[in-house]
């Protein structure tokens, strides 16, 4: 495996987009290559951090915003 392409390969692996053959090749490679193992762990950590930081991010639309949009929409119907 080409270490230069590992970010893309590991990224695909973390998105569960590799075939079984590709997964096996990746596993065999990172068992032998410390740099790529470290890269794998750091990529996995980054995605966990993102989930951790953004898991509670969804907020409701403020009522006044929602009211304004429906008001504008009803004006818009008449155009």
């Amino acid at each position: 495996m080409d270490c230069k392409k590992m970010i893309a390969i590991i990224s695909d692996f973390l998105d569960n987009e590799l075939s079984d053959i590709e997964k096996n090749s990746l596993q065999a490679h990172i068992e032998e290559c410390e740099d790529c193992l470290a890269l794998y762990r750091s990529m996995e950590a980054l995605l966990l951090l993102l989930k951790h930081c953004y898991c509670e991010e969804s907020v409701p639309v403020p009522k006044q915003v929602s009211r304004r949009i429906f008001y504008q929409l009803r004006i818009h119907y008449k155009k």
């Binding site: 392409k5 762990r41 750091s42 996995e44 950590a45 966990l48």
Partner: peptide
Amino acid sequence: SEENPELSFLQNVPDPRESNNPI
């Protein structure tokens, strides 16, 4: 570039699988 071989950041971030609360 994803092809930069010098990328060696975050090498020692704890393996998330080794802890229930890795971060």
